[in-house]
Nucleic acid binder design. Structure first.
Lengths: 206, 206
DNA sequence: TGTACATCAGTGAACGCGCGTTCACTGATGTAC
DNA sequence: TGTACATCAGTGAACGCGCGTTCACTGATGTAC
């Protein structure tokens, strides 16, 4: 573990961290295997001991990103306490906060075009993230009488899409962000409120 | 104009088309200036007569994309005929159709990180596109009594975000698309219907 | 209508660069006895 | 506890490649008179 030794000791983690730094600085396309090695302080051949190639590293970053994202959303949801609506609002804010504060992860997860079909682990990590949203949607939908209850999966996909759209278009930290006459968080929250109203869940009085 | 002549005659257009082909094939990051020249059948130095650099070409593709997108949405809207709700539904379908059929344009517009602040033309083109959505939102909002009328800009941003989210996550043609138990168009339409309901515009009976 | 000339849109060769990847190697670490 | 040895995680040099960009150039086009 000593950082003075011939062996790095923790190169895999160091490469992941380097990749995140580079993505944050130069965008997802501006990350190179060689520069990641340089940042980690090893020779350009060293990363090949830990990743087959650049794409495998990228997929691993995305996978870790989904795991963190899932944890963040799960924490925001907190089993729907104190009530599902308050918790649901927290999810929205947590979503945008993650996209902004962990934008390198977010880029790796959604903007690098990592193919999901050849990465079962990655696809599974993404599915687990969706499962958190779905679970929250179920709790919300349960407040409706069965005959007016929408499919929770559909509701989860709507909320995911709206959140992702707001995050992509208005919630990023870079120059491609569009100016907005309000905070992205407020835009999302207002949108979710209208949506819930549309489901028949008006003003938190089911 | 003869294609046999020494001069290409229409190189600028040919480079744009080449860029779109390359983006469609290899993604927005996989497009290079050199290969665009090769595709157009000219030497690697030729593009510099028409574009300062790679980024300027990319920005021009994005600008043209916004212009086409605006036209597509405007046509879908068709001044809200026969009624605003039918026309609004058409906009949603047109949005997803554009993202799918013209995915090279869509990538250039939203996924290349072209900075908007140094490209006033590009920013203006994007604003004109938003203006179409806003105009549609205004027509929809006008169906509500003034005291329950939301800001049309907010509604336009919600619809844009939802559409972009659905398109990015589920509506693309590549391997990064997520599987969905329904068509992206149906997901978006259902979401918009719930949203309109939430505004108080239920089942097309204002 | 011809001619001289300016302008323009290309050529093609060259450059320096950083990339991904490979290779034989070597020093450190871990393990069997 | 010591020693021999296998394994492992790095090195560093090298490769071929394609990129963006520049340069002096040249053939085609357009224009003035």
């Amino acid at each position: 573990m000593s950082r003075r030794s011939y062996h790095h000791g923790n190169l895999k983690e160091a490469l992941i961290r380097a990749a995140l730094d580079l993505i944050a600085q130069h965008g997802p396309a501006g990350f190179t295997f060689a520069e990641a090695a340089r940042t980690a302080g090893v020779s350009p051949a060293a990363p090949y001991r830990h990743f087959r190639d650049r794409d495998e590293l990228m997929a691993d970053v995305a996978r870790r990103g989904f795991a963190r994202f899932e944890a963040v959303l799960e924490l925001a949801w907190s089993q729907g306490r104190p009530d599902p609506f308050t918790a649901f609002e927290r999810i929205g804010r947590a979503y945008l906060a993650f996209a902004r504060d962990e934008s390198a992860y977010y880029s790796a997860m959604f903007e690098t075009g990592v193919p999901l079909d050849v990465n079962p682990d990655l696809a599974a990590a993404g599915d687990r993230t969706l499962a958190v949203l779905k679970q929250a949607a179920e709790a919300i939908c349960a407040r409706l009488p069965p005959e007016r209850r929408p499919p929770p999966l559909m509701m989860a996909l709507h909320v995911w899409s709206l959140s992702h759209g707001v995050a992509s278009l208005f919630g990023r930290g870079d120059a491609a962000r569009r100016k907005l006459p309000m905070a992205a968080e407020d835009l999302l929250e207002a949108g979710v409120l209208v949506y819930l109203q549309g489901l028949g869940l008006g003003a938190r009085t089911p």
